[in-house]
Design a protein around this nucleic acid. Structure first.
Lengths: 124, 124
DNA sequence: GTCCTCTATATGCGGATTGTCAATAGATGG
DNA sequence: CCATCTATTGACAATCCGCATATAGAGGAC
């Protein structure tokens, strides 16, 4: 199976989504701000943010986590006590909290711009 | 000067902005729904949608217009009556009106997702 | 035991999209 | 005729995303 998960692989291709990371990264960071976690479960819980597994490959999640680690926003360690394969657990760092705040502010401004656009559209 | 416009060229690099296309294309299409226009002026008027010239290269605008034309959303013709260099005027087509409506709906759902995220962030 | 499935992470490829910058060219003003 | 403003286009590099694939431990079926 591709990077995706359980369920029939089927011939349904994932559509290419533009600018997903705009919401994806803040979502991941927010989840890590709430509690430390590993990639597989974070991927699972992304549905709470409107990401359906069928339209998001898990490899993107793992890659983003590694990238955020390189940026010093989060750090990781191996959890060997858990069952099954080892898990790479992530926890947020101070720099991550700061960045999360910035991203939220940025999203607010995007939201406002979208609102303006919708308003202007409605007024024909 | 690069794709940018008037004002000192200066050594100030444009900052990389992510996911701006998400709003850019609907903005352009909405402006064309209001009145036919050419790229240079559309670029100018993007400030009304929160795009500052310093953070958006005009070449992106031209490229998006060509792309929307290839998709059959808009059409173009040369305006030779105007002063200065010839202008490629764009007008929206029916398919463009339809697509604009879809894009607006899509933006609404993105807005909702952003709202959810912000709400979850606030509740610590 | 052997096979299959589920959990869990990682990496490489290739095409699509994006950002930056340079080139072109007519018009205008000194 | 030289600099500047208007207006558009193309080239190149970097990034992004979907897909395929590799690895590997644990548990159940038989």
């Amino acid at each position: 199976m591709p990077g995706g998960r359980r369920g029939d692989p089927g011939p349904c291709r994932k559509r290419r989504r533009r600018g997903m990371r705009l919401i994806l990264r803040p979502s991941l960071l927010l989840m890590l701000a709430e509690k430390e976690n590993h990639g597989y479960e974070l991927y699972d819980q992304l549905s709470a943010f409107g990401f359906e597994p069928q339209q998001l490959d898990s490899s993107i999640v793992y890659r983003d986590l590694r990238e955020m680690e390189e940026l010093g926003l989060i750090e990781s360690y191996w959890d060997d006590d858990s069952k099954g394969p080892k898990r790479r657990m992530y926890r947020i760092l101070d720099a991550g909290q700061t960045r999360l705040k910035e991203w939220i502010e940025s999203l607010k401004s995007i939201k406002n711009r979208i609102n303006q656009l919708i308003k202007r559209y409605k007024s024909n």
